[in-house]
Amino acid sequence: MAEKPDDTGPVGPSNNADAYWRANLLLVACLLMVWFIVSFVCGILAVDYLNQFRLFGFKLGFWFSQQGSIYLFVLLIFIYVWQMNRLDKRFGVDEEE
């Protein structure tokens, strides 16, 4: 998703809003997939399998469920903020100063 303001071209406001919304949904879907994998898959469903591996003194599944998932949640929100601010600019729907 490179930043190319010119590519959006002369589209009507409703087309533009639809395209913005689709891009938004795609971004959210990708991020929520990661959210599901790090918490529900790594921390719960596959925890016993991952526990045979180790990360220093932690069993890996235990680490995901009590530490790793939380770090990644924080990261996901910041990626979302960063990408959404770019989308806002690209589609010209960002808030006026």
Partner: peptide, 25 residues
Amino acid sequence: IAFEGADGARYLMGWTGGYVLLALL
């Protein structure tokens, strides 16, 4: 968590993961 060990993770993930939903949705 001190008494339940690994099962305590439901609170750790549950009460932080909700913020991802809140922020994105």
